[in-house]
Design a protein around this nucleic acid. Structure first.
Length: 142
RNA sequence: CAGGGCAGCCGGAUAGCUGCGUGAAUUGGUUUCUUUUUUUAUAAAAAGGGGCUGUUCAUGAGGAAAGUCCGGGCUUCAUGGAAACAGGACACCGGAUAACGUCCGGCUGGAGUAAUCCAAGGGAAAGUGCCGCAGAAAAUUACCGCCGGACGGUUUGGGUAUCCGGUAAGGUUGAAAAGGCGAGGUAAGAGCUCACCGCGGGGUCAGCAAUGCCCCCGGCAUAGGUAAACCCUGUUCGAAGCAAGGCCAAGUAGGGAGGACUUUUUUAUAAAAGUUACAGGAGGCGUUUCCAACUCCGCUCCAGAGGUAGGCCGCGUUGAGCAGGACAGCGAUGUUCUGCAAAGAUGAAUAGCUAUACAUCCGCCCCGUUUUCAAAUUUUUGAGGCGGGAUCACGGAGGACAGAACCCGGCUUAUAGGCUGCCUGAUUU
RNA sequence: UGCUUCAUCGUCUAAUGGUAGGACAGCGGACUCUGACUCCGUUAAUCUUGGUUCGAAUCCAGGUGAAGCAG
């Protein structure tokens, strides 16, 4: 079993597009958000999106398969546990070199990880500041 | 033959690494449920079943899987049965089929030298409507004409004006003007008469029939077109669709019982009514190293209904199945015998990557032609364009259309390239 | 996946089978010292391919694209 499961529900995809972090490269787009499941498993979840825009049914299937193959190689290494990911195919996913596809995927995953860690840091510091302010503010009226 | 037509078939191959779905097997691992036994209990053991996972074996996308255009199975709804009306679909004739708007054979008309191909191809003497502009007139027509007669003026006659009548040959318009063309005939004309052609009716023969051949008659007032205008005639059709439908079923809301609290009545027991809630606070459980963020609980128990989230069935070895043989038939197809049979996903499997050879294409090579350009120069060279040959070597490019979603029979549309058979035409022998 | 509907200038819309009209926008000109307003002129379309018809935006058939409903 790989270190991730498959994302299936429509609601999860909607949540991702609405409030997830997005990184786009030439051949694919990656979205990520913290999972809302309180499960014990620490596995990440992945979903693949191929819209009607990129081609007919057999082209969409091909894109999904290539994305799945690329994810099987690199996803476990660069994903964070307890996160939901969506990989979206673009118009040139079917024709692009496989190595380039892998490169883009790794780049996107790395970048999104950095982004989320930065945001967490900022939020943590903000909270800290608020607490300090509150602690400072409380004694003043006393 | 680098002409054409028809029918049928294939539609990528091999190897390596890494993977996916389904089914079967497995005293493999792990987890959970039920039953039985032991125990005060926690718990333990045995049997059976399910989930996840490992191993082995088997198997896994088309000719169109597509469009969703017809027909059927299947399911639900409605319904005692049948018929009629409305509405839809179809329409030369005969046959095939479960059925069809499909298929086969024939007819008629059209295209082609031919093989062959194409056609929604019933009815306009049941009725209604429409036919812009142009034109006299677009449907019981009469403007210009042609002809005869009457009367007036002048008067030899002819011509002209008006009125009455005959006529549909000629003119103009248009997509279309009341059969065509020629001859006779006539005051002028006219199917008025005749020949040929067209049309209609009847008869003989051939054919199941559509229809065809021949003969006779009519004399076209049966009188234009349009029915993919309404309509008429004949045949036929209940509606919706697997997200159909069936089963299991969290949670939430609601019901009952008890407990707790509040209010009222009562000396009290007790009875009645209401609340058991939003927000806030404190706390606990779970994910997390922590923080942050999020979720759930927040008095207990019981019963049944509904059927949401979710799951299972429907769903694949049986279906108008595929392959081959025999017989019947021109054929579609039918009868019969033998053999073969496992795709079943559901954010959706059936693959991803690499290498090799091969079909094919281009260049390289040769020949002809063109003058577009450049150089020398007045016909040479080089580059380019077009056509043909050669396919040995070398280099490069390189796999058409396209992905099952309940299942079948068709239709329509997309499709690189290859193979096989038959027919026809031209040329040569 | 199934079902339903629609397609007309760049945009919004008209058109009993008979010359595709109007508004806004665009372009050119006039008015003005200049701009706006106003006026005049002009460009521009029946999604596509066939068929029926003398003649199709319209009627019929195939294709393409878009939208909606069911969950």
């Amino acid at each position: 079993m790989p270190g991730y499961t498959v994302l299936k529900k429509r609601g999860d995809f909607v949540r991702l597009t609405r409030c997830g972090d997005t990184v786009s490269t030439k051949t694919l787009v990656v979205q990520a958000i913290r999972s809302n499941l309180p499960k014990r498993s620490r596995k990440a979840r992945v979903g693949y999106t191929t819209t009607k825009k990129i081609g007919k049914a057999h082209i969409r299937n091909r894109c999904r398969r290539r994305l799945r193959a690329a994810a099987a190689l690199w996803f476990r290494k660069y994903s964070m546990p307890n996160f939901d990911y969506a990989i979206i195919a673009r118009y040139n996913t079917a024709e692009a070199d496989f190595e380039e596809l892998c490169k883009d995927l790794v780049y996107a995953l790395k970048k999104i990880r950095r982004k989320i860690r930065l945001e967490d840091k900022i939020r943590f510091e903000e909270r800290k500041h608020e607490k300090e302010n509150a602690e400072n503010a409380v004694p003043v009226p006393d």
